[in-house]
Nucleic acid binder design. Structure first.
Lengths: 330, 330
DNA sequence: CTGAAAGCGCTTACAG
DNA sequence: CTGAAAGCGCTTACAG
């Protein structure tokens, strides 16, 4: 790889002049400039980003930490982050934790060591202290989807409203025995959806039928098993709310396997991301603007990164709303 | 952030000694070592990776360039890459191109500028020259899934066999009018699947019914539209082969919308990745070991990165096989 | 066993 | 308008 020095030698000027010419950072005589451009061209010169980064104290890279990507909303969020970051001149580093505290801690330790300028995370909730430390050390942290630490910026969804609205919607459709498939309430989204569900039940005088666990709940199998459990417990259940899409797929399958129809038991997903509309019987869902949320998170993160050293902005919290996409399963 | 110098000052030794102690790179007196560790601990010292990278000429980062992530096999491959890379001490940088040549070129230009030690790419096929340039400049490039350049290493699937085997399987099931939904044959996977399909048709004396295009074909809508087209053209089609899962979802939906059943028109996906098993009527597919392919690609890439300067290994080509997962749609 | 020095490739005041 | 010099934070021969 050609370096600045090589270009300088070929163009018969000092490296500093080359740097200025190439970066347009101060006036350089047109003739000199031309010679420099030609030399750079000839040598196929590309500046070494590491050296720039070291010198300028900025890496122009943000780190993203997520539990998983495949078949989840996170892959879409990541695409949003990546696009926005790239448009603004930043690269995106990705780490996958499988929601394990240990893996997450490892990722965080590595990322804070000068790898990135800022961090976007959908955390396990088990490394809160590390996250606060990182933020305190000057590396901005933005929480996506899961707002576990109020002191850190976040981009989230109105999960409580989501849960509430889904019940209301189903109630208006005539459902009176509404089951909820959820995940661990130690994570904000599950907790808030649950609260919204309960608030609506109270208001309509309905009984709670819910299924939660502390295990990884983000799966088809979990949705399938929970639905079986709910229907075993109360065969009159006439609607199932699934926290995420894959659980909804499991619920639909369970209903079909039991020889029932989706007319008898309606299904709605509380965080839709595209798959709902692609099914044999398409699934109603509260659709989440995942891509835009990713872009927003990247924007917030970069804004904090680029804020002048003295005046780091206070943490900001952006909340998006889900929109009901009514389909055939309800 | 504390630097080496800070630690050195606190421990009353030279920075070089601190470096040696912390990296265990030469003998340091136990007492000194202890003082250094204590100082590093107290200051919360973390080495600056950029400086290390600049000095050592290695970034310990690999770049990944993919067309998209959401609802595709690529998100799973990426997870495989990321896990293997992390286990081996590498970070993973991700770029999404949406299969646009221009976006891809931008990504490549940035990545080659010292951002990464090696590259894994599922290319558009339109920047072959740039890729060869990059490889020639000393940055290893590994192609994943799409082997567009024979001179670059690759990790792929036996797509030809996939296409052939699917026809054979359907033929044995009694199907005689087999349609194929494919994508642009300028990409190796589509081309090879098509060849396998044709080879089998020739062998069994069947007629070709195929749908291909140069537009982005990787979608539900495309699968839906193609199926309609195929069935309009020949209502006796009794099986549809879809290149990818989302096309298969579209095919199923089209069949259902036409008031037909999956008994009449069987559906198989040629690159399954989990979703097939989660459906109301589960979809048969040739399942691809995506996660392992990702790990393999990361392994190949890192091996090339770490090969001694003089003896860069020749390009390697690893081919995986798909396994038939028989489900209800056939 | 440890220090002093050079250097990775760049940028940026400071002179002139 | 351009050069010489310092320095980002580290590692690594070279002495001693």
């Amino acid at each position: 790889m050609a370096t600045l020095k090589d270009v300088a030698r070929l163009a018969c000027v000092d490296v500093s002049t080359v740097s200025r010419a190439l970066n347009n950072t101060s006036y350089v005589h047109p003739d000199t400039k031309e010679r420099i451009y030609a030399a750079a061209q000839e040598l196929g010169y590309h500046p070494n980003v590491m050296a720039q980064a070291l010198r300028q104290g900025k890496r122009h890279t943000i780190g993203v930490v997520m539990p998983r990507l495949h078949m989840t909303i996170f892959s879409q969020i990541l695409q949003g982050i990546e696009q926005e970051a790239r448009n603004r001149g930043y690269a995106t580093l990705i780490c996958v934790t499988e929601d394990e505290a240990k893996a997450e801690r490892e990722c965080l330790t590595r990322l804070r060591n000068g790898f990135v300028d800022g961090l976007i995370i959908a955390a396990t909730g088990k490394n809160g202290r590390v996250l606060r430390d990182i933020q305190a050390s000057g590396l901005p942290v933005v929480q996506i989807l899961r707002e576990q630490e109020r002191r850190l910026s976040s981009v989230t969804l109105e999960f409580e409203t989501c849960g509430y609205d889904a019940v209301k919607y189903l109630y208006d459709k005539g459902c009176r025995e509404i089951g909820l498939i959820n995940g661990t309430t130690s994570l904000a989204p599950y907790r808030d959806r649950y609260r919204g569900y309960q608030r609506a039940l109270a208001q309509y005088g309905l009984t709670e039928y819910s299924c939660a666990c502390t295990q990884p709940a983000n799966s088809y199998e979990y949705g399938y098993d929970c639905t079986n459990q709910l229907l075993d417990y109360n065969p009159n259940i006439d609607a199932i709310m699934a926290a995420v899409d894959v659980q909804g797929l499991g619920a639909i399958r369970s209903i079909v396997d039991r020889g029932m129809s989706l007319e008898q038991v309606k299904v709605i997903s509380l965080t839709g991301h595209a798959v709902g509309g692609m099914l044999q019987t398409s699934m109603t869902s509260m659709e989440m603007p995942a891509f835009d949320m990713g872009k927003e998170a990247a924007g917030l993160c970069i804004a904090e990164v680029e804020a002048p050293a003295g005046q780091k902005p206070a943490s900001r919290h952006v909340t998006f709303s889900a929109t009901l996409a009514e389909r055939e399963s309800t």
